[in-house]
Design a protein around this nucleic acid. Structure first.
Length: 333
DNA sequence: CCTCCATC
DNA sequence: GATGGAGGC
């Protein structure tokens, strides 16, 4: 997933308290859904499901998390992927095949009663399908949250909206929006701040990554950063074997990107990928309007349609309505 | 992922 | 208040 710049960007993390997160945030919707669907599971890998067997993990995660953000004064907008560029097809095919393999391994693990393995494979087999995206969009709309359908990559559209000044930052676990030029990225944006890693529970804190700070610190341009991504590997190309973040930085700083690619991967033309990052398809006519939550319809959807507990949904909505009542309409819209 | 509750 | 564990649908 995304571009593996973690090693070199870890020096440019700024702690992000809630006081600094009260602006408008452009969320990578697909990224969020993937996160919910991989993590909200029972120990044997079974996701949350309604009585008809429809998966509801994403609705649970989205509902409780977005409610929290609204309560803390943040205004989220969710961006969803459109049609991927042609040169992503190899990556998409690889991922689909890996998921099919994981699905088989999952069924096998269940049949032999290997709970841990089942959990692992179920996570790897996670797919975001049309039904999941549609139900998420419906939930967000009922919560009064704007949804933007990107023409192509959601991360690109999100970055564009920050550059345009319509939102304050992008929110994603992936670093791609930086390569699309987003000046401000927020990672680890959760409420619970707890995460299970190999059985242990660790605390994670929301963090900002500021593109100007990264570029200045590394002494490169955004085009260099894109070249680094291409050398390491992105969603759109495989990357050069043996090249990590450190090596990539050296190569681009020495202005050796073109010659290095020519030498190591003569078949590969990096130009379309580079151009895509620099100039991705984006909508300019998006509408950002935050609305009141429709409590009645939310009850209907979550409790009647998807078997959520009435009490839990109610307590969240009560808190939301309370908060909205305290604000004047001007503050809220 | 989130909430809730027990525990310190 | 912080932490850890069970359960959500």
């Amino acid at each position: 997933m995304g571009v593996a710049l973690r090693d070199i960007l870890s020096d440019y993390k700024n702690p992000a308290g809630w006081d600094k997160l009260s602006g408008k945030g452009a969320f990578d919707g697909n990224n969020a859904l993937y996160q919910f669907l991989t993590t909200i599971r029972q120990p044997d890998g079974t996701p949350l499901m309604d009585r008809e067997g429809r998966v509801t993990s994403h609705l649970s995660g989205m509902f409780f998390r977005v409610s929290n953000f609204l309560e803390k004064g943040m205004k989220p907008v969710f961006i969803f992927d459109g049609r991927p560029p042609d040169f992503k097809s190899d990556t998409i095919k690889e991922r689909r095949e890996a998921k099919e393999k994981a699905e088989i391994a999952y069924k096998r693990a269940v049949s032999v009663g290997d709970t841990q393995e089942a959990y692992k494979q179920a996570r790897s087999a996670t797919k975001v399908d049309a039904e999941i995206i549609e139900s998420s969009k419906r939930l967000l709309s009922l919560m009064g949250i704007p949804v933007v359908d990107a023409p192509s990559e959601g991360e690109a559209q999100a970055a564009f909206m920050v550059i345009n000044g319509d939102v304050s930052f992008t929110v994603s676990q992936d670093y791609d929006s930086l390569l699309f030029g987003a000046p401000k990225l927020v990672r680890n944006l959760t409420v619970s701040r707890k995460r299970k890693v190999r059985g242990r529970t660790i605390t994670v804190n929301p963090e900002f990554i500021l593109l100007p700070e990264v570029l200045f610190g590394l002494g490169i341009t955004v085009e260099n950063l894109i070249e680094m991504g291409i050398l390491i590997g992105t969603d759109f190309n495989e990357g050069i074997r043996g090249v990590g973040a450190k090596t990539a930085l050296k190569i681009v700083k020495n202005d050796n990107f073109d010659s290095f690619i020519k030498e190591k991967a003569p078949e590969f033309d990096p130009y379309p990928v580079k151009e895509f990052f620099l100039n991705p398809p984006c909508h300019r006519d998006y509408n950002l309007k935050w609305d009141k939550t429709d409590s009645d319809k939310l009850f209907e959807m979550l409790c009647e349609e998807y078997d959520f507990s009435h009490a839990r949904v109610e307590s969240v909505l009560d808190k939301l309505n309370e908060g909205a009542g305290q604000k004047t309409l001007d503050q809220w819209f």
